[in-house]
Design a binder for these strands. Structure first.
Length: 590
DNA sequence: TACCGTTGCGCG
DNA sequence: AAAGCGCGCAACGGTA
């Protein structure tokens, strides 16, 4: 494929482009290069910075091509702030990172040589906080550590990626992965633009109830002071600094509490009057430092919490986030997630996503049957494998994570008998990892190769004269890696399912009719104040913020999308993905 | 003053 | 020291 941006398009009725490549051109302009399905150029258009969003919006309305973007995270904010959303894209930065490692790609050498595209996203890069205003006059993305965005390089990389995908072992799967990953890039940009509707007053109520009223800056809240005093009283030491683990540990020892660390899990095992208030104090301290009033001031503005989502930020393909710990919002604060007046939150999470994904991947009939139409763990109990749901859960998690001791170590062998196909899949993945091999998800994302230090240690341990210590360390490192690859195939495939779910949902919601503009314009801006939209995503859970009259339809869209994702990844499989779904003003009851 | 490793804990 | 995967973040305490 070679595209000359200046080539004239055919006269008469222009054929509809399949792709539209955005790239920085000369004179500060941006080029839009339309390509047909084979990647041959049809025609080009150019936009000055101030006209870019309008032109992209027009092309999107006229022919909704798949947009080829060097980096959606860099291009989307300016488009979104101008009210332009894209239906579909191909994110070169994210796709490059998948393809250069994927075992399905037969010849990754050209991609690996294009090192400029291997720039990881720095999650602390601030451009998306300020970009829309600072760079308004700039036609192209601009941020440090960015991948190339000029037209020539963009077209060249797109050609490399198409060649890699077309020649891959299973192009159809890889195309699903590329589409899902790219949809994720659009969704992440839109989630940040929309923000999570956040009730500051409710958050403050929760904090005050737990900690006492908001103190003046620099002083601890009243209930923490009181509880801290109880701890020091019980320890008989009025000066223990409770926030310093080493000093607290020594004070615990002096009081005769024999613990190896100050972690709550260990403290719980001991009987001493200081334990209960100390555990309470730790809870309060965590809430204050992680999500206290300072967090509220820093992260919530105009009723919206806007974290930065980082698609592909985790090796397995899960998203990471940056900014206020979006993926770690404590359940305690969920009631602060609150719909705008006249709107509702539709929250849905998938029950036992990872074991279901494993059942589908391995085609394990018994495991699929155990989860059919019900709670998977209860199904395992009813199959007679274990006697309680808790045991079933611990056993399944042990299977997914590689547990060998305790309860999970006892239950896993029984699961191996009952669900041989599922267990073989994860056991094989672990064995491959221990042998330094690479494993691959259902759609084609491969685990990273072990690092040099790991390989060196394994090689050294296999020498005849290897010291016992080195041998044991190498064994442990091998088992560690085995647990990683064991989990990689499941966690990674679950991430692919979740992306497919959201991608389907996003397109359905985009088709909802616009509702009348509210009297006071919503703070999330025109794009997201007119119809139901995604507001939150957390691995196996979505929250849609919807006008009240669209809530039921949004709930149906969420369910339909989950079914669609299951059929897309596992066509013909009887596996189902049941949801827990609620519609309410708040995302959780107080 | 800036940076770094460790500890501890929140989420799935 | 959470039995076993993946993360982000704040605080401490030491070092440059």
């Amino acid at each position: 494929m070679s595209a000359g941006p200046g080539e004239p398009g055919p006269t008469g009725t222009a054929p509809s482009p399949t792709w539209c490549v955005l790239g920085r051109s000369d004179g500060g302009r941006t080029a839009l290069v339309m390509l047909d399905a084979e990647g041959a150029p049809l025609r080009s258009e150019y936009a000055a910075p101030e006209g870019l969003a309008a032109l992209v919006g027009r092309v999107e309305r006229e022919s909704s091509p798949r947009w080829v973007l060097s980096d959606a995270a860099a291009w989307c904010p300016r488009l979104l702030s101008a009210g332009v959303t894209l239906q579909r894209c191909h994110d070169l930065r994210l796709v490059h990172r998948i393809l250069r490692h994927s075992e399905l790609v037969r010849d990754p050498a050209p991609l690996r040589a294009a090192t400029a595209w291997d720039t990881p996203l720095d999650p602390h890069e601030p451009v998306r906080d300020t970009g829309a205003t600072l760079f308004d006059l700039d036609a192209a993305p601009s941020r440090s550590g960015a991948v190339p965005s000029d037209l020539e390089e963009t077209l060249a990389e797109f050609a490399r990626q198409r060649t890699a995908i077309d020649g891959a072992q299973d192009p159809a799967r890889l195309r699903l992965l590329v589409a899902a990953e790219s949809a994720g890039a659009l969704i992440a940009a839109e989630l940040q633009a929309a923000g999570i509707p956040w009730d500051v007053a409710e958050h403050d109520r929760i904090l005050s109830a737990a900690l006492g009223p908001r103190p003046s800056p620099g002083t601890p809240p009243r209930r923490m002071v009181e509880t801290g005093a109880e701890v020091r009283e019980a320890l008989g030491d009025p000066l223990v600094p409770l926030d310093s683990a080493p000093k607290l540990l020594r004070a615990l020892h002096r009081a005769g509490i024999d613990v190896a660390s100050t972690s709550q899990w260990e403290l719980k095992e001991h009987q001493h009057p200081a334990i209960a208030p100390l555990l309470q104090y730790k809870k309060m301290s965590r809430l204050l430092t992680a999500n206290g009033w300072t967090w509220l001031d820093e992260w919530v503005h105009e009723g919206r919490y806007r974290p930065l989502y980082v698609p592909g930020g985790v090796v397995t393909g899960r998203w990471a986030s940056s900014g206020g710990g979006a993926l770690q919002i404590p359940r305690q604060l969920r009631p602060a997630l609150r719909a705008d007046p006249g709107w509702l939150l539709v929250s849905a999470d998938v029950s036992q996503l990872e074991p279901r994904v494993l059942a589908a991947m391995s085609g394990d009939r018994a495991m699929i049957a155990a989860g059919a139409g019900r709670d998977l763990y209860s199904g395992i109990v009813e199959a007679g494998v274990v006697s309680t749901r808790q045991e079933a859960k611990i056993g399944v998690l042990g299977a997914l994570y590689g547990g060998t001791t305790g309860d999970s170590g006892r239950v896993v062998p029984r699961l191996r008998q009952t669900f041989p196909d599922a267990m073989r899949l994860v056991d094989d993945a672990a064995a491959t990892g221990e042998r330094s091999g690479t494993v691959t998800t259902w759609l084609g994302r491969s685990s990273p190769a072990p690092d040099e230090e790991w390989i060196r240690a394994q090689r050294a341990a296999h020498q005849v004269d290897a010291p016992a210590g080195a041998r044991e360390r190498a064994r442990r490192a091998a088992r560690d890696r085995g647990r990683f690859t064991r989990n990689f195939v499941v966690q990674g495939t679950a991430a692919e399912w979740a992306l497919s779910w959201m991608a389907a949902l996003r397109l359905r919601l985009a088709g909802f009719p616009a509702v009348p503009e509210p009297e006071a314009a919503a703070p999330s801006g025109p794009v997201f104040s007119r119809r139901a939209h995604l507001a939150f995503f957390l691995h196996d859970e979505v929250i849609v913020h919807a006008p009240a009259e669209q809530a039921e339809a949004a709930a149906a869209a969420i369910r339909d999308s989950a079914d669609a994702a299951g059929r897309l990844l596992f066509p013909g499989s009887p596996i189902d993905f049941p949801l827990d779904l609620t519609i309410s003003e708040r995302s959780a009851q107080t």
